[in-house]
Simulated scan of single mutants.
Amino acid sequence: MIEFNGWAIIRESFREEDDNNELLNSIVKQIEQKILVELDYGNEIYSLKCLNGTYHLSIMVNHNHRTEHVIDFFKWIAEISKGSYGILYVQDDEDTERGNENAFKVWRMKKGKVTELNDTYLSPLNPEIEE
């Protein structure tokens, strides 16, 4: 089983002086289109909402087997919207080659880059969450 839980704030720039509403609107439309057309899988929820002028993306995914398209989507967002930031928690019990079957991995998005990090809050899955 693989599970993804995450969020991102969608911004076109990480510098206030580089803010551009036209660019932000274009980015939001691209993300909405990708969700609608390319990410129409079962067992997945993507929600992009504007709250108080800020775009919030929520991601919830649960599959029986490993899939990479969610991480690829997260990386793509970082590429097209350098000011976006967020966290994607991943628990993959099939990640045995890297020894992560009992751990969460954290994918951090900031300043146009996505980095995989070790989790310190929920790992190891057993005994922190399960016994």
Rank of each mutant, 00 (worst) to 15 (best):
I31T: 00
E17D: 15
L117Q: 15
E79K: 06
L36G: 13
E22G: 12
F4W: 02
T96S: 08
E68P: 11
K113W: 09
L57H: 02
E38Y: 12
Y55G: 01
V106E: 02
E79Y: 10
E79W: 11
K113E: 14
K111G: 06
S26G: 07
K29G: 02
V70Q: 07
I2H: 00
N102G: 00
E131S: 14
K29Y: 04
G99F: 06
D119S: 14
N102S: 00
H63R: 11
G83H: 09
N126G: 07
F73S: 04
F4L: 07
S26H: 10
G112P: 04
D19W: 15
M109G: 03
L24I: 06
E97C: 08
D19I: 10
M1H: 11
S47W: 08
L36T: 15
F14Y: 11
E131V: 13
G6H: 03
D93R: 04
N118M: 13
E116C: 15
E116H: 11
N20Q: 03
D92P: 03
E131L: 14
I31L: 00
W7M: 08
E44M: 03
Y46W: 07
F73Q: 05
M109A: 06
A8Q: 03
M60W: 07
I80Q: 05
R11L: 15
D72W: 15
Q30W: 03
G42R: 09
L117S: 08
S123K: 03
L57M: 05
Y41D: 04
E44N: 04
L48W: 02
D95S: 13
I9W: 04
N5W: 15
K110V: 10
E44L: 06
E17W: 11
Y46C: 01
I129P: 08
L125T: 12
Q33K: 09
N20R: 09
E68R: 14
L88N: 02
L125D: 06
N126W: 08
E128H: 15
N64Q: 13
K82H: 10
K49L: 10
I87G: 02
K82N: 09
M109L: 06
W107L: 05
E128A: 10
K29R: 11
S26Y: 05
R66S: 14
V70D: 03
K75P: 05
T115L: 14
S123N: 08
L48Q: 01
A78Y: 12
E94Y: 15
V90I: 08
E44K: 07
R108L: 12
F14H: 06
K111S: 15
Y41R: 05
R15P: 03
G83D: 11
E130N: 12
S58L: 08
I129H: 08
N5D: 12
N52C: 15
G53L: 06
G86T: 01
E116T: 11
T115P: 04
R15F: 14
L122F: 11
F74Y: 14
I35D: 00
L125E: 07
D92Y: 00
F104D: 01
S84E: 11
N102Q: 05
V61W: 05
E32V: 03
L23M: 12
K111Y: 15
N118E: 09
N52H: 12
Y41V: 05
N100P: 01
V114E: 04
L23K: 10
N43P: 01
I27F: 01
E128Y: 13
I35A: 01
D19T: 08
F104P: 02
Q30N: 10
K49T: 14
Q30H: 05
E22T: 07
D40I: 04
E12H: 05
R66D: 10
V90Y: 01
